[in-house]
């Protein structure tokens, strides 16, 4: 029986295959940019309509947790970028350790998000569940928190998907000698993880920072 070739017949080389995978990932990321872009457009329209309410609502978010989560996500992205660099036969144990670190930080992010949600629930900041806010700003604040919960929940879903994908790659790298296919897979997952990190940077600036100076 012939050996299965390393790449499918439509490619001329493994490099061709890996480059195609990378461009495919960028196309996928473009669709994701538009998914979050729609949410951000909604945010801009609401904030333009209710500027004072958005500042007041933003002051009620937990900036300490938000800042910690941003640092956690930036660090996990750094670890994943290092894991891509350490993906060689000699250093694959290090690569797995770096991926495990990134997964742990990802889980910590989701955990802190949960703590934050619980706090907002207790403070009656969840629209639809006994929402209460200063009457002057109630309408705009409700829209702010609607955006906050929808955007951060979709982002957290992306985090959970990313954590699962990183875990699959870590397991593969742990059990078998690295191949170029695994390298391409790790590279695709890394692109996704960095993208999720970049989305959070913008969500952080839009959700936690407005209204702090006034």
């Amino acid at each position: 029986m012939p050996n299965r070739p390393a790449f499918a017949p439509q490619y001329v080389s493994t490099r061709h295959r890996d480059e195609t995978a990378e461009l495919g990932m960028w196309v996928f990321i473009a669709t994701e940019v538009l998914l979050f872009g729609g949410l951000i457009l909604a945010y801009c329209v609401f904030r333009h309509t209710y500027p004072e309410a958005f500042a007041a609502a933003s002051r009620r978010t937990e900036i300490a947790i938000g800042t910690a989560n941003t640092a956690i996500l930036l660090t996990s992205s750094f670890l994943v970028a290092c894991a891509v660099d350490a993906f060689t036969e000699e250093t694959r144990k290090i690569c797995v350790a770096l991926l495990a670190g990134a997964i742990a930080l990802g889980l910590l992010f989701v955990l802190l998000k949960g703590v934050e949600y619980a706090g907002e629930y207790r403070e009656h900041l969840v629209p639809g569940i006994d929402f209460s806010f200063d009457d002057k700003f109630a309408n705009g604040a409700k829209l702010f928190f609607l955006f906050y919960f929808v955007a951060t929940a979709i982002h957290a879903l992306h985090m959970l998907i990313g954590i699962s994908l990183l875990a699959v790659i870590a397991r593969l790298t742990w059990r078998r000698a690295p191949t170029t296919r695994h390298r391409a897979a790790l590279h695709s997952v890394a692109l996704y993880w960095h993208f999720v990190d970049a989305v959070w940077i913008f969500l952080f600036a839009l959700i936690y920072l407005p209204g702090r100076a006034s």
Binding site: A30, E32, L34, C44
Partner: peptide
């Protein structure tokens, strides 16, 4: 071009 396409469409959207 592939990475910029998403930003270009985002620009049009916003």
């Amino acid at each position: 071009i592939f990475a910029g396409a998403g930003l270009f469409w985002l620009g049009i959207l916003l």
